[in-house]
């Protein structure tokens, strides 16, 4: 028997069913789903390591100015004498430039630290917007049903059928490219998936007795949605949020890579990868491409593994807790 087969109403330990005899009864302790989820998460080593990595990345982003101070290299400063060869090629890792320079003689280490700010900012803000819009739409569609559900469900279908990159490139060519437009584009294309998940959850929850009870006591629709239903669909939302952050980060990097995202000289991982990829110098300057790529890989991997852990922690049927 796995832990996942037991719900909180029937307390279990990791070793198996508890002894519920007279002495054992004293050990029985009621635990909320949140606490159970946290405990499961705490025992997931991969998730914990990922969380530590995420914290480190956040710290690097916060203390990016410290890197600038220690090296004396502002992120956008070009060093023509020390950062480039006379032929304009990047310099490799040295004491002066720990991770080498790019093809404009800029310090890759400092730019990576500042680039983390953009990635995390976009990852968090775009995801927050995505989840907020998706949750509202999903709640409304699932709760009100009928014509509201029909309209919103079709809207979700339409949004899911629009090709993301083509639309993003078109939008960026109409409006001025930049961080704001990247966040808006990611939010516009992300909310429909969240809405579909939330709608499905709400459709089943709205028929529960406690919802009926609240309705019979005269509670309004918005109160029922926000107070009675939302807390009960929050778990999948949290899980999806953790998985959406790396998607947003990669989405931002992709847009910047295609030249429709954050514009130069802003330090941005996608932009840095694009610079390296389009440069002839990359064949002779591996660090130019490798370091920003590795930074993006580690960040998205950490968020993905952590997201998996969160999902497993909230999913009592999962058998992947003990790793």
């Amino acid at each position: 028997m796995t832990v996942g087969d037991i719900v909180s109403a029937t307390p279990v330990s990791e070793e198996g069913p508890l002894n519920v005899g007279p002495e054992g009864a004293k050990k029985i302790e009621g635990r909320s789903p949140w606490r159970l989820a946290f405990e499961r998460l705490r025992r997931d080593k991969a998730a914990l390591i990922s969380m530590i990595v995420i914290v480190l990345i956040v710290v690097v982003a916060i203390i990016a100015p410290v890197f600038k101070h220690l090296t004396g290299h502002p992120p956008n400063q070009q060093y023509f004498d020390t950062g480039l060869t006379p032929d304009g090629l990047p310099r490799g890792p040295t004491g002066t430039f720990v991770l080498g320079t790019d093809d404009l003689g800029r310090d890759i280490l400092v730019r990576l630290a500042y680039g983390a700010r953009i990635s995390l900012l976009v990852g968090v803000v775009a995801t927050f917007l995505t989840v907020a819009i998706g949750t509202l739409v999903g709640l409304a569609a699932g709760y009100f049903g009928k014509i509201v559900d029909t309209v919103l469900a079709r809207l979700i279908d339409v949004m899911l059928s629009i090709p993301f990159l083509l639309f993003a490139i078109s939008l960026a060519s109409v409006f001025q490219t930049g961080l704001k437009i990247v966040i808006i584009v990611l939010a516009i294309f992300g909310w429909s998936s969240v809405a579909r998940i939330v709608r499905g959850q709400v459709l089943s929850i709205r028929e529960r007795e406690y919802v009926e009870a609240a309705r019979s006591m005269g509670a309004g629709s918005w109160r029922i949605m926000l107070i009675d239903i939302l807390p009960n669909v929050i778990a999948p939302i949290i899980v999806y949020t953790t998985l959406l952050i790396p998607v947003s980060i990669v989405g931002e990097a992709t847009l910047s890579f295609l030249g429709v995202g954050v514009q130069p000289p802003t330090a941005d991982w996608g932009q840095m990868i694009a610079d390296a990829q389009t440069s002839n110098a990359v064949e002779h300057a591996w660090w130019f491409l490798v370091f920003p790529s590795v930074a993006l890989l580690i960040t998205t991997l950490a968020f993905n593994i952590f997201g998996d852990g969160v999902r497993d922690a909230f999913d009592p049927r999962s058998d992947r807790v003990f790793r």
């Binding site: 956008n76 070009q78 490219t177 030249g259 514009q263 610079d275 389009t278 440069s279």
Partner: peptide
């Protein structure tokens, strides 16, 4: 933005003119 030399030269000009207090912003 699709041209490596165009993108690089824009940023070089941005830095050089920045030294005399001229702000250069890109129009991709």
């Amino acid at each position: 933005p699709s041209s490596e030399s165009s993108k690089k030269m824009f940023q070089v000009v941005q830095q050089d003119l920045g030294q005399i207090g001229v702000t250069v912003t890109g129009v991709p």
